[in-house]
Amino acid sequence: MNQALLTWIAIVGVSLTTIATRGSFVVFGSRLQLHPQIEKALRFAPAAALGALVLPALLLRHGHVDFSLANQRLIAAFIAALIMWRFKSMIWTIVVGMGIATLMRLMS
C-alpha cells in the first residue's frame, strides 16, 4: 500500500476515536441507565479533568516537579489564577497570564 493511503487510513482512524469517545454515551449509550450515584459523581468530572490537565502541565519541567522561580509558567499561571479569583474575568486572566509569561521570558 502506498504511504499516502496509509496516512489517510490513520487520519480516518484517529477521527473515529473522536466520535467513538465523545459519542460513547451521548450517541450510542443514551438509553443506558447510569447508576444515580455515578451520575452524581460525574458532576465533579470538570474539576477533576481540569486538575489532571493543568497541574502536570504547570508543575512538571523535564519530568520533575519544579516549584522554583525558574518555572516561569507556574508563576504566570498562579498570578493568573489570583486575577481570576479576585476579578472573575477570564479575558483579563488570559491577558495578565500571557503578559507575565512574556515579560519573564524577555527578562530571563
Partner: peptide
C-alpha cells in the same frame, strides 16, 4: 493553559471541587 486555569479557579471554592482538582492533578 491559562484559560483552563481560569475555568478551574471558581470550581475550587467548595471542598469536593478542590479535592477533585488536587487529587486529579
Amino acid at each position: 493553559m491559562v484559560a483552563l486555569v481560569a475555568l478551574l479557579v471558581p470550581m475550587l471554592a467548595n471542598r469536593p471541587g478542590f479535592a477533585a482538582c488536587a487529587i486529579g492533578g
